[in-house]
Design a protein around this nucleic acid. Sequence first.
DNA 1: AAGTGGTCTAGACCACTTA
DNA 2: AAGTGGTCTAGACCACTTA
Lengths: 251, 251
Amino acid sequence: MATMNIRPEVSLSLHQRILKDIEDNILTGRWPPGYKIPSEQALTEQYACSRMTVNKVVTQLARAGLVLRRRKTGSIVMPQNSQSAILEIYDIRHEVEALGLDYHFDIQDRTVRSPTKAEQDALSLSSRRRLLQLSCLHYAGGEPFCLEERLINLSVVPQAESESFRELAPGPWLLQHVPWNAAEHRIAAEAADDATSKYLSVPKGAPVLLVERQTWRLDETVTRVRLTYPGAQHALTARFTPTQSLNPLGM
Amino acid sequence: MATMNIRPEVSLSLHQRILKDIEDNILTGRWPPGYKIPSEQALTEQYACSRMTVNKVVTQLARAGLVLRRRKTGSIVMPQNSQSAILEIYDIRHEVEALGLDYHFDIQDRTVRSPTKAEQDALSLSSRRRLLQLSCLHYAGGEPFCLEERLINLSVVPQAESESFRELAPGPWLLQHVPWNAAEHRIAAEAADDATSKYLSVPKGAPVLLVERQTWRLDETVTRVRLTYPGAQHALTARFTPTQSLNPLGM
DNA sequence: AAGTGGTCTAGACCACTTA
DNA sequence: AAGTGGTCTAGACCACTTA
């Protein structure tokens, strides 16, 4: 009654099955950010197991940053608009303000269209899916700081089509609306081409730092973004320890 | 008798104290890679607690990649020369061979010296410490692939002074000899200067990808390295999920 | 005062792996 | 056959937090 697994995951241990159940509830959005998850006592009854077993699961989810544990009032699905380590890394506003500079951004371009053949392959999409394509320029102290070129999979995030992105930049908006599962990064240095040099106000051929990131929810691509920074003045930093489970992950 | 904590960490729970004890044993090198750690039964007696408590600790250490659990023969400190996710990320040989190219490297320069004032600050060193400075060029398919400029803190790794680095490049050699605690990265794009363009056989001013990494063991800097890649042809990639405790960390 | 999570116990049975 | 880790139980006491 509690589990809805169709796949015959017979070899999973009890706490692994419970973990997967709850993870699914969160990642599909059935339990949205802020949702109060059942208490350990309730989960114990629901899964007809001991409290230690569900405690292990919820503790693990908390360490992974998916839930927030609180006494007396109970645990909730992590509100993704809170100041998580992940948000700090993904929000260019934080980067800029950490440098002590004023931040603003504007949307330069916005198009809804079908995926090209290359995009169907790269994003694992069928040709019937529609994409929202955004170009966004981020400023630090009034100067161009980062060019963001983004594709959003509208079959995963249909609300994006009617969103203006005037209040919140696409990155943080997505973090608030779509729980994600996995991310992949690619980092490279390139010479600025014509368009990039104009957007970022750097000479053509100047070194720029390229960060490409693709993000999934379960098996579907949520978004792919390409961030271009003037290379000489900007740097990404990250710190981590191998012995902690969740920390500012990598970059 | 089992613990040697001097600091009054009174607020730590029992399993946190045990975790810290074992972590210290590993990170200081008292328990070197491959060392067979006490069985859960032995730890249970040593700390006069239940098996669940030590099991929780060792499971956590295994998830963090510090120990390798094996039935019957017992758990051991993670052999850092094995194919761990961390090693794959840190070993340029892996990068090159993943591209299907032949790999080799050579040491271009090797100097033992005192730290400059700037280095004393950056590495938190006193002026009496000595540093080993290495320049190393990595090749892929016979072509220059990456320039490595490294400083090694000889007070943490005295064995490095007599090491030739002929068999093993400095990065993997350090991974085998020094357990580390924390790492910090800085990534940027730059234009190749005179020396770099010669080393890497790229035009002066061409975009290069710069990765700077500093690594600590407990509170001491182990090494600082600056890796320079021809930017146009190379890219770093990384993949991670927020719900797993240890994975190819960020980058 | 009462609900919740944090931690710990003292057992148990089993699977896996090597001797 | 025997040692080890993997998992789970059914309790317990407590700290914290809000009602």
